[in-house]
Design a protein around this nucleic acid. Sequence first.
DNA 1: GGTTTTACTAAACACTGTTCAGTAACTTTG
DNA 2: CAAAGTTACTGAACAGTGTTTAGTAAAACC
Lengths: 203, 203
Amino acid sequence: MSIASRKEREKAAMRARILSAAHDIFKEKGYDGLNIRSIAERIEYSPATIYLYYKDKNEIFFALQYEAAAAKRDHLLPAANIEDPWERLVEFGRLYVDFGLKHPDWYDLLFLTRAPMEHIENQDCWTLGMATHAFFVETVEACVAARYFKSTDSSTIAYTLWCHAHGLVSLFVRERMRMYPPEERGKLAKKSFAMMVKMAESL
Amino acid sequence: MSIASRKEREKAAMRARILSAAHDIFKEKGYDGLNIRSIAERIEYSPATIYLYYKDKNEIFFALQYEAAAAKRDHLLPAANIEDPWERLVEFGRLYVDFGLKHPDWYDLLFLTRAPMEHIENQDCWTLGMATHAFFVETVEACVAARYFKSTDSSTIAYTLWCHAHGLVSLFVRERMRMYPPEERGKLAKKSFAMMVKMAESL
DNA sequence: GGTTTTACTAAACACTGTTCAGTAACTTTG
DNA sequence: CAAAGTTACTGAACAGTGTTTAGTAAAACC
């Protein structure tokens, strides 16, 4: 059993090495600059070896997406400690946008990459993302329960707020804000977020 | 001179044939399924010929993006006839979302594709898109002028509304709404749009 | 009618993801 | 401990991208 378990450990270690290399290359050159041969070169193995540990590039993509989801969760975590649901919601939103603007590559990977979405429900990255999303929805529900809004349709409220935050970050990440001068983009994002908070208050 | 002008016409005709083929393939197989060899095959020329009429694939991409921008403008055009600025704004938004949900590929091409954005300001597609965007901003300004909002910060208002609509369509187009059952997604989009209109009324 | 210019293409290059046959090392077995 | 079997790994290839280049045949020019 000892040899078998050692092999298992080695297998896991190799998977980790591959993923770590992929992670580094992704951070350096983005997803477009990430390819099997560059991973192989970095870990000093042949490209074919990668396929002994990952079925295909999509599997590596999903693993990376899991890391992105974890990074996002960690970024949003501080909001969880806030007692008041409304303040928690606002801080959650602020951190969400902040994450997107600070880590456009991670955000892109999570929400904007055209990825094989067919069976993503079975992937760990999806499960993790859903947990974070559930926390957001629960916060909205807590606000509704505490009568912070006139409306009681918590799912539509949550979705609407998400749409705005996601749209905000997306336009930024995919460079569709070129009609505004670069130094104004951040300010506009901040002002728009504040406006959305104001609007939500009278919802 | 006659021969020269005929040649010019033939050159333009060839460019149009290439673009038309690209358009068809794009509609059939999406942007991922669009490649130089498939265009060449369809117009019954060699792949190298394409490069005598378009500098590279990006130039074809920009031309396609122009078509998408034109399709979007045409889709939004009916709103322009509405006199009342608020009603015009609402209809504009409704048609914007409608366009995105009905033509996800076009929308993707316009706002979600990771394209060479460095010099897009010089491209016709950008100019056209900006014209449509200007019409939207002017409508918001008209609403502000007519005191439809308490706030007078028209650019932030316009941007905020755009963020929501864009986020709504983006989540749809890039399949990030899988936590909602398929038949509910359209309904949720409608409800969220209505909620945003309500929120904007009390802005 | 001979020369120059144009329109076009076959073939290649460089780069992707991926597969497969072969090999060398490790593990098991008698 | 040596033979047999299994595992880990790789070189070379395949098929698919965008793109370039040398060469050719037809058209245009003089």
